[in-house]
Computed example of a mutant assay.
Amino acid sequence: MADPVRVQTTYGVGIGWRPEIGGFVEGLPGLRFAEVVAESVHAHGDLPPGLRALLDRGVTVVPHGVRLSLGGAEAVEPARVEHFAAVAERLNAPLVSEHIAFVRAGGVEAGHLLPLPRTREAVDAVVANVRRVQAAVAVPIALEPIAALFDWPGDELTEAQFIGEILDRSGAMLLLDIANVYANARNRGDDPLDLLDQLPLDRVAYVHVAGGAEHQGLYHDTHTDAVPQPVLDLVAELCARHRPPALMLERDGDYPPAAALAAELDAIAGASGYPTVT
């Protein structure tokens, strides 16, 4: 496996490919980077036409897993890992990504990404599962810390320490979701720059940028709302500290008109200093 820290090609501003906005994504003239939910791509057979068109244009497409449950107490399911590896190979992806989270326990599916207790036992579980994935996937993996609406009692580590130990022991890269940094800090009453400055930014593989909304006093990382200005401000702060290879707009449902999507991409480009893709 390649040294993950050295995967540093610059892709600029990208977007998550979804079937509902496939035509819009395919039509972006300056696009060099996109992401697709790994579980939405078949391991065999034809690729969705829009996705095939991006690959034919030379756009880098990274598979992003949402169902491996790397933080679960059980070992990752071999069939899911096999599919993950096959999709990465089909897309000729330079890396893959998944979440520091769990989605099932004792055979019960949560249907949502759930946060882990920040304990060393949880670190052990994540690292063991990441190593199982790395043994099957031929490219590096980047791990994404999620937005959490609550913290478990009895945490032994800060969020930055928890993330750092997992990355150090697994050798994985960091998929930094700047919107999650904002959400977690806001919900805890913390300064997001404090967390940003504690993270290993030299290990960032790429960055998610997404919108959210407040509900009953908590900020929810919805992916269905426009990216708010405070998140764009964090993008600028991040790029001033360590410019990432790519900044990717995440939208998952309630898709706005093409002009609004283009404006969001332009806003991310403006905050980061990267060229626009529209």
Rank of each mutant, 00 (worst) to 15 (best):
V13K: 02
L261E: 10
T276W: 05
L167Q: 10
A258W: 09
L91E: 10
R241T: 01
L196K: 11
A205M: 12
V25Q: 15
A260D: 13
M1Q: 14
L201V: 11
R241F: 06
V59W: 11
T10L: 10
G164E: 15
V139E: 05
A93S: 15
P48L: 10
G154L: 10
A262M: 02
L175N: 07
A236K: 07
A267C: 02
T276P: 02
S97R: 05
G72L: 03
D151E: 13
P117G: 11
A213Q: 12
R188A: 15
E237L: 08
L47I: 13
T278R: 11
F24C: 00
P29R: 08
D46G: 12
D254H: 14
W17K: 02
S69K: 04
A271N: 03
V133R: 00
D3M: 10
D177G: 14
A2P: 15
V123Q: 02
P230R: 02
G45W: 07
P78A: 09
D3H: 11
A267D: 05
T278M: 01
I166T: 04
P140H: 01
Q161K: 11
V13A: 03
E39C: 06
I166A: 01
M1S: 14
E159D: 13
A138F: 04
G58C: 02
D3V: 12
P4D: 15
V127T: 03
D221I: 11
A136Y: 02
Y11A: 03
A53T: 08
G50V: 09
R118H: 08
E77M: 10
L249D: 01
P115L: 13
R67E: 12
Q161P: 13
A101N: 03
E165T: 07
V96W: 01
Y11D: 03
V81N: 08
V231F: 04
V209S: 06
G154I: 00
A101F: 02
I21E: 13
P256L: 04
R118D: 04
P19L: 14
D194L: 15
D252L: 05
V25D: 14
V181G: 06
R251V: 01
H99Y: 02
R57H: 07
H112F: 11
D221E: 15
R251H: 06
P153A: 10
L70M: 00
P256T: 05
A93L: 13
E77I: 12
D221Q: 12
A236N: 06
L232T: 02
E82Q: 13
G22M: 08
H99R: 07
